[in-house]
Design a protein around this nucleic acid. Structure first.
Lengths: 403, 403
DNA sequence: TTGTATTTGTTGTTCCAAACAACAATAACA
DNA sequence: TGTTATTGTTGTTTGGAACAACAAATACAA
């Protein structure tokens, strides 16, 4: 019972530096999420003293991360409080390689996309090629950013399973990538820190920070696109990652005895039962944008399509029920064509959910559609890139846009 | 974008008191988990300064929570380090009402059960009655504890869904309790603080702290008894509770199209497919202890029983696969007769698990049996009761055993 | 046995971030 | 115009962790 240190608490003692870092991080995170906040609000939200907030904001301003402006609030008694906002010249790059295109965006510290390029490719790019494309796009975008812009880093959202620690894409079936060190490659090329994660997990993060799950502490999200069904989970305010970073692959959970297999070869999973291709087929389409598919679903009346839609709604409902039972979240967020399914017959979906969910967990459950659409992945990827800065505002490096 | 505070960070700014509290809590938690630790180890584990550890330990000793003793380590160069251990006179009571008995235990701060009473009942007790029984047992046990013993509180492990915030048992099918305020009742009777949680969640906590999942940060546990299948999840070192406290009801997740229903009326769930009663029936037993059932399973050779066992193994494997895909845990811990199923044919179980788990999440997955057996629930309940003390060693109240 | 190197505990001092107190600034309102 | 309420600012206080110097206790080599 003695001897070996059994726990892995890893230097979690708190000293003065941690204290300051924690508070700086807290203030910057609040501004990051809320955009503009009065200093007096910061004191009441954090519980810190007026003078402490003054000091913290001054330090953040000195580092060029926030800007103090004249009071904007009107109506209250007493001296008007100064407004604090995130600096507009701090950005992160978001990278999203997909089967038919690679997209790049520049996102500001308050979550606004200020620039965006979509670079179509004929075939699915090799990892090395995708990294080169991304680097070129970033390089050219970097030149066009306003002088004085500073870059926090790069976040990549990949449709596949990602080892978050080292930025290696373990398996991305739609890109045909296996054990691809995309993060290190792109970091090498750009000279910027690169973080990589699963696209659906990042979209979830974006919905939590700016979208329909804003501020929620317990969220399950399902995200469907041409690349199957992805998922993301927020537990107590933080993304669920699991021991090696693969947690949240909600599309691949088996919910039925069906022998239909998904893109990873598992039978009876949510992804095997709720398939974009099956919808396209019944609508006699070879390909369609998300908007076109949405239109077809919402206007479906023929028996064939309706039957397929209903069967997918039923499977989706069961999946949601399982997740709600396991996680007891405040809400479930649906994106991509899943929100079309929801809107087609929300009563049916909610009914299936109710029948598949443990009563207690169902009581306060909300099912919603995502707010951010295709922005979610990019904003989420930028979130990932901003994380270092938000975690340690005093020490995280910033890079010049043009040198 | 301004105005309303959107986030719910709730006074999370850190001040000096928090700092001290955090460090006291950290040290006490380490001792709680590791039993006896050298002071020099505390410095290296926490990263705090030697003199700071000295100060913290002195404060904890002054409050009677820890004891410093002579150096026990031998062999090293240099001055031997003093040993620090948790005080032996601080205990929590664990309460576990079940269908046919109510069990009480006194557990020390280092997780040892020093006293235990099982009080059989003929019928399932009403909440009020169960609270009275528990109070009587606690009162009599309180008198027999050594003079000077101090009590941190009471933790109750209930086989059902518990609203952790207010100690109300929302639904416990085996006890036939609905919306029963068991926590407040017992607190009223005993005059002690009472916390309540689901029994399987607490057993998981115990396995994480002292059992086969000791020190693991990502654990899924499945726990089977006469009351169906319960579950518990540890995410990043902390129990998963969900937004209203009902998370982790893993037995009630639908994994198949079967129409068999579980105790909560849901069809096709893990609990509906892995049933103790089905095993008893095929063994032609009316009732059996866990040990008897374990013996029967491990020695089964007849075609009928083997077939049932195999079918349950297959369902269990699928359930584990779903959970491993969702949570990507380091390990899955099986307790109760699930460990018997595992031991009967571990190859078969692991094979099913492999086929139901996303490859990435399967790579580093361990499946283990629980170490603590029936102790787990009681130790876990005591953990719950100790939580206040561990969270804030300087402020949490302690109560005398005999007055 | 003695001396040296090594590690740990102890004590007094230093340092730093947050709290606090007093005052100035700026609004609403009577 | 004076009063009240709220917020920002400045200088001081405070508490807890780090630090430095020294003492204590061991292993090991000479």
């Amino acid at each position: 019972m003695t001897g070996l240190p059994i726990m892995s608490v890893g230097k979690s003692g708190q000293n003065r530096e941690n204290l300051r870092q924690h508070n700086l991080s807290l203030v910057l995170r609040l501004l990051h999420q809320m955009g503009t906040v009065a200093r007096s609000q910061l004191t009441s939200i954090t519980g810190l003293n007026r003078s402490t907030i003054s000091d913290l904001v001054a330090e953040l301003a000195a580092r060029g991360l926030v800007i103090e402006s004249e009071a904007m609030q009107v109506g209250g008694v007493g001296r008007p409080s100064l407004s604090v906002a995130t600096a507009t010249n701090v950005v992160a790059f978001a990278v999203n390689p997909e089967i038919d295109a690679t997209t790049i965006a520049a996102v500001t510290l308050d979550g606004q996309i200020i620039d965006r390029i979509r670079y179509p490719t004929h075939t699915q790019p090799e990892p090395q090629k995708a990294a080169q494309i991304a680097n070129q796009l970033i390089t050219s975008m970097r030149k066009q950013l306003p002088v004085g812009t500073r870059i926090a880093g790069v976040g990549a959202a990949v449709p596949g399973q990602v080892r978050v620690n080292d930025g290696v894409v373990r398996f991305a079936p739609h890109l045909n990538w296996v054990e691809a060190p995309f993060g290190p490659m792109l970091s090498q090329l750009t000279g910027l820190p690169v973080s990589v994660d699963n696209d659906a997990s990042l979209a979830t993060l974006a919905e939590r920070t700016y979208g329909s799950a804003k501020g929620a502490r317990h969220v399950v999200s399902l995200f469907a696109g041409s690349g199957g069904i992805g998922g993301g989970v927020i537990v107590d305010g933080l993304p669920l990652r699991g021991s090696t970073g693969y947690a949240g692959e909600l599309g691949h959970m088996q919910i039925s005895n069906s022998s239909e297999v998904d893109f990873s070869g598992l039978p009876g999973t949510l992804e095997a039962l709720v398939r974009r291709d099956d919808l396209l087929e019944v609508f006699k389409l070879y390909s369609a944008t998300d908007e076109e598919l949405d239109f077809e679903i919402l206007n479906a009346t023929d028996k064939g399509p309706v039957k397929v839609i209903q069967s997918q709604i039923d499977a989706l409902g069961r999946g949601i029920g399982v997740l709600a039972t396991i996680f007891n979240p405040q809400m479930v967020v649906l994106s991509g064509f899943l929100s079309s399914l929801f809107q087609f017959d929300s009563d049916r979906l909610l009914d299936v959910v109710r029948k598949s969910t443990l009563q207690s967990a169902h009581d306060s459950l909300l099912v919603r559609t995502g707010d951010l659409g295709t922005k979610a992945v990019l904003v989420g990827a930028a979130e990932l890139a901003f994380n270092n800065l938000l975690e340690n505002p005093a020490a995280a490096p910033l890079f010049p846009a043009n040198n």
